[in-house]
């Protein structure tokens, strides 16, 4: 068997491979379930946003106070 014949046979057999439709259906269902995430993951992300928000407000207040000190009465 030449390399060319071998590769041709390999391609022929592997290209006939199919994914069963029930596997695809379960895959879509599980992937959609993962997409919405769990309650714990939502709580983590909510906490990160809250902390980022507080930090941003604190930085803003600090900037205003600094401005007033430099340019204020």
């Amino acid at each position: 068997m030449t390399n060319k014949e071998l590769v041709s046979e390999y391609k022929r057999v592997m290209n006939s491979f199919e994914i069963p439709s029930d596997v695809q259906a379960r895959l879509i269902s599980k992937s959609l379930g993962a997409f919405t995430g769990s309650d714990n993951e939502n709580k983590y992300f909510n906490a990160v946003i809250a902390v980022s928000g507080i930090a941003a407000v604190a930085a803003g207040i600090g900037a205003v106070k600094l401005f007033n000190r430099i340019f204020g009465d």
Binding site: I19, Q24, L27, I28, F35, T36, N42, F45, N46
Partner: peptide, 25 residues
């Protein structure tokens, strides 16, 4: 965060279906 708290809409469903169609086999 937005993706995680939204209920599954058409866009998310379509993304999953397209990804499965393109790559699952």
């Amino acid at each position: 965060e937005k993706r995680k708290t939204q209920s599954i809409g058409d866009t998310e469903q379509r993304y999953v279906e397209l990804a499965v169609e393109r790559h699952s086999k």
